[in-house]
């Protein structure tokens, strides 16, 4: 799976969680600026665990890995 495909999957999931329009969400925007908060972020991490079999919550990743959807997708792609 390519990083671009992962980005698309993550954007669609964030749109679902936030009840927002996926087309309005940028992969380069910080997650908090999209409206993601503690609870919705945990929902996203749970989705990543179920979809990609990766548990990121306690994996010691840096804050930079979570800053944008692009960064998060790159990190997921590396771990697959």
């Amino acid at each position: 799976m390519t990083t671009v495909e992962i980005e698309r999957i993550l954007i669609e999931e964030i749109a679902l969680i936030l009840n927002a329009d996926a087309g309005a969400l940028s992969v380069d925007a910080p997650l908090h600026s999209l409206g993601v908060d503690s609870m919705s972020f945990v929902e996203l991490l749970v989705f990543i665990e179920k979809r990609f079999k990766l548990k990121l919550m306690d994996s010691g990743l840096k804050k930079e890995d979570f800053r944008t959807v692009r960064a998060l997708a790159a990190r997921v792609s590396q771990s697959l």
Partner: peptide, 12 residues
């Protein structure tokens, strides 16, 4: 909160 709890973990 960022430092001690993690990114976007202000509520916890």
């Amino acid at each position: 909160a960022d430092e001690k709890a993690g990114y976007l973990m202000l509520m916890p």
